[in-house]
Design a protein around this nucleic acid. Structure first.
Lengths: 204, 204
DNA sequence: CGATTTCAAGACCGATCGGTTCATATTTCG
DNA sequence: CGAAATATGAACCGATCGGTCTTGAAATCG
């Protein structure tokens, strides 16, 4: 005979807050201020958690930061999976992908910057957990861009002499550089024009 | 009758350390660790100054950081002035400029990153002094690249349809993006190949 | 009910932060 | 020499850091 509920239910008061929502709020803080400049009170205010609850749920500041970073990366990946949908036109995908960067690079979004780029510059080389995440994200992004470029080349939509894999590396550098320059000059019109001119060099 | 020395000489013990050398050592520390992660003891160790001397000479941590940032920017500007020498071939200048980025992006240099990019991501938007410096540097760099591209275009060395001013914006984004990606993957061969492929899109 | 668990609030911890001050030694000057 | 300036190193400052612990209320179970 099988027990009806082989998994033991917790006995006491159930958790009353949404862990994932707390991670998202914490992500917002790290995103705006960076890792070192974010203090515990900032996180408590944003998550509306008490010190005790936050530590019980996430361990420590560094672990919470990694959760936030993972969340940021997951969001970026699902966005790319939509933009680079293999059923759609690859050039349309590239345009959508770049349009997203223009958007995230304009006005307040631009001034806020990119958590990934900021983390890479602040912590990479001194934090192995961060290193792994940033490195694998850039590789994944490059692979998706390269795949789109390959499909575009097969369809004869690439300019002469464009090689998908090296063009993908160029494109990744370009968009991450956009994020850097956009921190001080988040001008939508210029970003858009720059992206358009960039794409003109690669698309037939 | 004129006094022989109208400028008053200081009476006591003269300064015994080189201010500019101290700024350079401080720059190295900020460069490696970032602003927030750099503590006073780090700066004292690097400059070999006592707390008192450092504060007497530079005021506070923030002022010293600005001096270090100014030094970094000045170095970058003089480098560009050499690379983009108006007497030389503009395409050679662009190649030299990009070769410098490949070099600074490889191995230990790459892992160290770029003080300007790191500062932009860490402090821009929250520190007006930093904002001004970063913004004007990017503008100055873009102007120099645009000038070189203009000269190249006049000499018929640019690919069809390349417009110097927008290409300059693209190039600036590209090299700054290189610095970001190079933090986790400072591979000389790949950087070099990426730069070469990039230039192929713009140079005839 | 009583056991159990989670909650918020805040006291508390040692360490470190950026910054000031002080005592003392040293080096230049008139 | 004695005044003036700079050097060092350590003591000291209040504030804040990340992190732990306690308290007492609230919520859920058997």
């Amino acid at each position: 005979m099988r027990r009806p509920t082989p998994v033991q239910l917790p006995r006491g008061r159930p958790r009353s807050f949404d862990t994932e929502a707390a991670v998202e709020r914490a992500m917002d803080v790290f995103w705006s201020r960076g890792y070192h400049a974010t203090a515990l009170p900032d996180l408590l205010r944003a998550t509306k958690l008490s010190r005790g609850s936050l530590y019980a749920a996430f361990g420590d500041k560094h672990s919470l930061f990694l959760r936030a970073l993972d969340r940021y990366i997951a969001d970026a990946m699902t966005r790319m999976d939509i933009e680079f949908d293999p059923c759609g036109d690859p050039v349309d995908g590239l345009r959508a992908y770049l349009a997203g960067y223009v958007d995230r690079n304009s006005g307040a979004n631009g001034r806020r910057g990119c958590l990934l780029v900021a983390t890479a510059m602040e912590l990479a080389g001194r934090d192995v957990d961060v290193d792994r995440r940033i490195g694998s994200f850039f590789k994944a992004m490059e692979a998706r861009v390269a795949a789109a470029l390959s499909r575009a080349k097969a369809a004869g939509q690439l300019a002469d002499g464009v090689e998908p894999s090296s063009a993908a590396r160029i494109l990744v550098c370009f968009v991450e550089g956009l994020r850097v320059v956009g921190k001080t000059a988040p001008t939508r019109i210029i970003s858009q024009a720059t992206v358009d001119a960039f794409l003109d060099r690669f698309i037939r």
